[in-house]
């Protein structure tokens, strides 16, 4: 647990900044809802008539004037993208940062197996993702309660569960990538998260590339689908978890055998 504690201590400032930024922004959006709800008659037509843009964000299938529809779109953009970037950042730097910063030599000349280093670093990444998800869920529930909206527990919890799984998947994939890198973990992670986000927008805009929803984790986080079905798409989630496991397995194989310079 020494490395877990060390990693959590090293990452606490970034965790606090990202959690408060995403949670705060999400809460601000929720606080804006009562005002938007009042203007929905005029605004609704505008949102519904933006063609592909409307479809890209799932607004063609959601009632933006209802709290759940509004939350699904806002949550997708703020928590979805923000959480994905943070998870990619954590995973992408987890192993590579030690070599980049020159601290790998210190860590790996102690009697700790490489597998244990990787395991504790992965545990620290997952712990930070879980902590961020819980605080953001708490902030979302508090802000919904504060504006007097009835909380749609099942769908709201499913949405947050989906985004937690998205973060786990991205962190797992980027964790794998970070074992192959000596530097550049941040750029690679953020780039991958942005790419997967855009792939989902493309899949929303045209049904011809529906298969992309099985590749990008944003596919099983689609608010419109969760609101309509009341469940997560098990196939897409399973595919995503396979990607995560492959990423983590690749990290172990590579990290346990690589030369540390």
């Amino acid at each position: 647990m020494t490395i877990v504690r060390h990693e959590l201590r090293r990452g606490r400032a970034a965790l606090a900044v990202w959690t408060l930024s995403i949670g705060g922004l999400l809460a601000v959006c929720v606080f804006l809802f009562p005002e938007i709800k009042g203007e929905m008659d005029a605004v609704g037509n505008v949102f519904a008539s933006m063609g592909s843009f409307t479809a890209a964000f799932g607004m063609d299938r959601l009632d933006f004037g209802a709290f759940l529809g509004f939350y699904a779109v806002e949550c997708g953009n703020v928590l979805g993208l923000g959480g994905a970037l943070f998870a990619a950042l954590l995973g992408g730097n987890a192993l590579s940062k030690e070599e980049r910063d020159g601290t790998a030599e210190f860590l790996l000349t102690h009697p700790v197996s490489r597998a244990r280093v990787a395991t504790e670093k992965l545990a620290a990444v997952l712990a930070q993702i879980a902590a961020m998800s819980l605080v953001i869920l708490g902030l979302a529930l508090l802000s919904a309660w504060a504006i007097g909206e009835e909380i749609p527990w099942r769908v709201l919890l499913l949405m947050h569960l989906a985004y937690f799984l998205l973060q786990v998947e991205l962190a797992g994939i980027c964790f794998g990538i970070s074992a192959f890198l000596r530097r550049g973990g941040t750029g690679t992670g953020l780039g991958l998260a942005a790419l997967l986000y855009v792939l989902n927008l493309i899949a929303n805009m045209t049904g011809q590339v529906e298969f992309l929803k099985y590749i990008t984790p944003f596919g099983y986080c689609e608010g419109a689908d969760i609101v309509a079905n009341g469940v997560l798409n098990a196939g897409r989630v399973a595919m995503g978890m396979v990607f995560a496991v492959v990423g983590v397995a690749a990290a172990y194989v590579r990290y346990c055998g690589k030369d540390i310079r």
């Binding site: 601290t103 210190f106 000349t109």
Partner: peptide, 11 residues
Amino acid sequence: VGYLPSEAVFW
């Protein structure tokens, strides 16, 4: 073993 590197780098 105790190892002293030529250039010590810490966090």
